[in-house]
Design a binder for these strands. Sequence first.
DNA 1: TATGAATGAGTATTCATTCAT
DNA 2: GATGAATGAATACTCATTCAT
Lengths: 213, 213, 213, 213
Amino acid sequence: MVPNTDHDGQSRSFIEEARRAQIVNAAVETIAEVGYHRASMGRIGTRAGISRGLISYHFAGKSELIAQVVTTVYTDAAAFMTPMIDAETTPAGQLRAYVSSNLEYMRAHPARMIALVEILTGGGLADLPDADPAAFDRQMLLPLEQLFAAGQECGEFRDFDVTVMARIVRGVIDAVPTALSRDPDLDIDRYLREITTAIAHATRPVPSTPEET
Amino acid sequence: MVPNTDHDGQSRSFIEEARRAQIVNAAVETIAEVGYHRASMGRIGTRAGISRGLISYHFAGKSELIAQVVTTVYTDAAAFMTPMIDAETTPAGQLRAYVSSNLEYMRAHPARMIALVEILTGGGLADLPDADPAAFDRQMLLPLEQLFAAGQECGEFRDFDVTVMARIVRGVIDAVPTALSRDPDLDIDRYLREITTAIAHATRPVPSTPEET
Amino acid sequence: MVPNTDHDGQSRSFIEEARRAQIVNAAVETIAEVGYHRASMGRIGTRAGISRGLISYHFAGKSELIAQVVTTVYTDAAAFMTPMIDAETTPAGQLRAYVSSNLEYMRAHPARMIALVEILTGGGLADLPDADPAAFDRQMLLPLEQLFAAGQECGEFRDFDVTVMARIVRGVIDAVPTALSRDPDLDIDRYLREITTAIAHATRPVPSTPEET
Amino acid sequence: MVPNTDHDGQSRSFIEEARRAQIVNAAVETIAEVGYHRASMGRIGTRAGISRGLISYHFAGKSELIAQVVTTVYTDAAAFMTPMIDAETTPAGQLRAYVSSNLEYMRAHPARMIALVEILTGGGLADLPDADPAAFDRQMLLPLEQLFAAGQECGEFRDFDVTVMARIVRGVIDAVPTALSRDPDLDIDRYLREITTAIAHATRPVPSTPEET
DNA sequence: TATGAATGAGTATTCATTCAT
DNA sequence: GATGAATGAATACTCATTCAT
């Protein structure tokens, strides 16, 4: 595995990689603190302790920087979550692991999650010229859909529309960063337990008692 | 019910109210179409067919206009939902009515809901100097919390944290506008049914079978 | 003839027209003084005594302003030259009138001619997205080509390539602004007489004495 | 002929000279391709395959680089033209040789001529702090003026202002690169023949028939 | 009431230049 | 000699707001 290669296969120097990472981190923190559309290049540079021009030196434009933020956070979160999900052997267990590992990541890196949600919901995607929101949408939902389909197959989940349920779960999880920012006293452990339980209830097979609407 | 009074108790003329409503509608449509932070006063004015200056004449600033959009949409949605919720006699029925009436409102006024979500998640609240996000948060959650408490009291709901469950339900609902914009083919009727069912499952009392984690 | 209408047929207010003219004049003077690519919006605004933003208010962008400068100067020069040319009855006389009226216009409005040449030769055309240099080229050459063709028909001109001769004449004339700027003591009257004579010699029929290369 | 000495009398190493020549060539090509004021040091470095910093190492600044481009092209063109001119024995022949050798040089090195004209007419001279446009002007005109004076002395040319006629000839020649760029189909051989003929007519003694304006 | 002219602050970006390695 | 990191100035443009009419 060759480290530090960009999408063109060009390798970057160590110092270049370090600067890019520093700038991406500054962007994450700035976006998390002041919101996406107030996070100007100037503010990001100030937070990183470098000049505006240097950001332009390392990134072709704001689009590339924002895209790098999205990629970095998304990739990092996936790298954190995937082993935990794969450690589970049943779909129900994997769903629990998906939700809890995602929330754990949010707790460990609140700024990253806030920044990601800011970009995704705050108009950031519209600023990325070659971003395909629909494709990103599908990419986000797919793992959950597959997980749900497998669970329905083996009878661990009831019969629901897997796409809609994937949206429901993402909706619940994506609401967490906003909740955290609006209520700093929020007990994330309790939040995690309640969400996990609620989703378990929403997805498990319907018991024999058949009186429902 | 006293019509047409602003928060200072000053009554507004009929024409003044009409202009404000026209501008608010133009703002809603513009925000829904181009996103919150691309919705400049100029674009809103153009859509309303009036000059930029006139908006400033009727609203102290962009902050007041955005605040008015939030208030108007929120109030209008509440006026639409409340009778439907009140028509139900049981907490479980009221929860169903809450969810379905909210989604019905979204279907009837997609631009309004998209605009509201754009403002709430897209940095709009941060632009309102005297807006208290925490207070707004509480205001949004309170009806659901009360509904849940009543339902737990009478045994229609299981024992969960009412605040967290309120956030869960809002998270699921608030994800709908984004889902609609990313997947235009989405079947909102099926979406509504699946959400209602999932929430019913997540909140109803745990059946006698006691095998849970 | 309805005055003050732009290319969309929208009429402009008097004050708008006046401001646009003022800005165009300031642009002309600035370009003539410091060169095309040093004539920033800021410098143009300063010379006009107005703010940078006001230029953006009246012109969609620098492209539109530059295009307007070209159009204005070209149209104005044509309006000045055409009656003088049409007053002549023979092609040879019209050619003399073409050259002399063009140089007279340069003398009367040196800044305008310098600015036009700056834009045309100094990279300005490349900054106009929908400008077609080849089309502009043809538009500049056409009147001279027609004039030459008519003169050859009636025997007033010798047999030469009308397009090349048109380029020659334009080359001679377009060199004048540069010459003026490099040699302020230049006697434009003598310049005019010499040019006219030289062009007359270059175009008139070859006399009977047939010793040529 | 002393090789490789700069204006301070300091001799340069062979590799230094080679690098400077490489950079000058890259500058010529870049300016010819994208125009003078779009030819940034970065683009020139990229075309030369070297870093930006290296250009600054070899040239005191952009000014010196541009000055070197002008000097190089001018000197090279003179070295090409001079023997052809000197091979002629009569002023009229020398004038023909001047024009044709200049156009031949343009045909052989179109990028060099385009770059030179870009710099001279496109604001480049104004970027050279210690360049004297008037002196450059005189330098360009002097050979032609001397040639014309000699020709008038021996009766090969008619009686005209030698400076103005020099400007006329330079104007005709300097318009060629622009013509070439705007009309790629231009037949340069025919262009050359027509120009030579026209200039011959414009300069030769007036025949006995004395009816002129 | 309503308009549109005008301002000034803020944004992303490009670029020549400097400097440590 | 050569590189590439870094700076700061300059540029075009957008926008909320103010104000005279």
